[in-house]
Design a protein around this nucleic acid. Sequence first.
RNA 1: GCGGGUGUAGCUCAGUGGUAGAGCGUCACGUUGCCAACGUGAAUGUCGAGAGUUCGAAUCUCUUCACCCGCUCCA
Length: 518
Amino acid sequence: MLTPVPPADKSMEEIVSLCKRRGFVYPASEIYGGIRGFWDYGPLGTALKNNIRDWWWHQMVDCPPIGPDGDPVNILGLDSAIIQNPKAWEASGHVGGFNDPMVDCKESKGRYREDHVSVLVPTDGQGLSYAFVDDRSAAEKKIKRDAKRSVEEYTLTELPAIDVAAYPSIVAPEVKTAGTLTEPRAFNLMLDTYPGPIRDEDAKAYLRPETAQGIFLNYKNVLDTMRVKLPFGIAQIGKSFRNEVTPRNFIFRSREFEQMEMEWFCPPEEALKWYDFWKHERMKWWRSLGVAESNLIFRDHADDELAHYSKACVDVEYLYPFTAPNYGELEGVAHRGEFDLTQHTTHSKTKLDYFDQDLQVRLQKEGVDKDEIKKRSRYTPNVIEPASGLTRAVLVLLCEAFTPTPDRKGSDYVMQFKPKFAPVKAGIFPVVNKDGMPEIAQKLFRELRETMPVETDVKQSIGKRYARMDEIGTPFCIAVDGDSVTHQTVTVRDRDTTEQVTIGLDKVKAYLNEKLDA
RNA sequence: GCGGGUGUAGCUCAGUGGUAGAGCGUCACGUUGCCAACGUGAAUGUCGAGAGUUCGAAUCUCUUCACCCGCUCCA
């Protein structure tokens, strides 16, 4: 068995190079020089991604876990459009909140949101102005010390109200000299597009920055058409797009990526229970991918870190080679309260509440007052959202599986994917390309490929063929030898131990199926 | 966005102004009896892109693009 390698000792450069060399991930539009923040998934990367995606869907939608009270949970699938009515993004807060113009300071290298910067401007218009973000006293000190004037002679103005032409006379926060601020630049976090044959500003629409909103937009449809009761979930997997300021770290932060999100709708008083439930279910799921426990942690968000919509949030984090010894974000489980449904109710003028008939009946039995029942049985559900990156999951499995093998003669790397997620499940090789062996291998190959991705190869030495399979993480290699001809047996080689077992030719399929199911 | 680094074959890299290279990988043929064996042969490059200097540029200059590291940002 191979010794596990700590993520900090793995080289991203080697991982990226192996991904290219073996067809996992290519730089997007490489022949044109690439494009920042975009990546293409090659044949093996696509297979790996699909395997992870299918497992998520299987565990989330088709065969979800039993809930905290011992009842089966109900989650429905959805595939909403990438482009929605732009008003949806105003309601969600993405249009208003993330188009903030930023100013840079050439001196301090600081970057500030324009609307966060305040400026003390001399009321008489003579001399320099002094800017600050939080620390007004620092600006006042500069006034006394450098301008040698009284603070009373200045008027407080917000930076957005100041003309760019006046910037040269502004002393930026944290610096002493004036004129170091650049003009404000808009950072559009959403990519936009113009549906329709004519480019018309009024037709501007956005590529979704998250799949979640498509779920909220269809909450009422699902409720009206699918005979569901609270609590229930809606799950969706799909592409999202964000204008990341700095795409970095291979496929970790890219401008086009794929998400797996589930919105869990529940009565407000149950929200914390479900938050806790999904938090731990999600961690279980990540472990089920074959990720070592020690490489995964929870990180609870501090209150001041919480997004505008969120009441509580925890990240599942992974020990990426490029963040080590720190962990980096992988999945967020957020308690979104009723924020989203309320926002969309307000903006769309469509009721997105829930009439709880079970509660109505229960309250009637308890003899609760009629008006009280009416009031309490109609409410806006709370939402718990486990949201993870599918493309980040691919990255995690690539990093986790990547194992340099200096001890293994000739072989450089083994990708230790759990068999369930390996792009190729088995290689079928005649030990030599003669004496009836290739024919048997070909027959076995044709039989296995009916149900699973397998490869066969008759060229070159057997060792070389094993090593090639190791590098793409194929868990099993089946060698057809002389005994296959005389006794109808083959040997199955384990990728991680290189140990071999001899089994009957007719047992191969069952043997592999058992291992792949684990 | 800032600072630093890098860009030459699929991968790793050598090549500092004068004919485009190596190792590995890939392919073909031979060999083969379980771990990148061996032999012979072959293909593969607009030297990231564009412009300039020069008789001549992978090499010098400028611009640009991409990647890496550190800041910054990250609903």
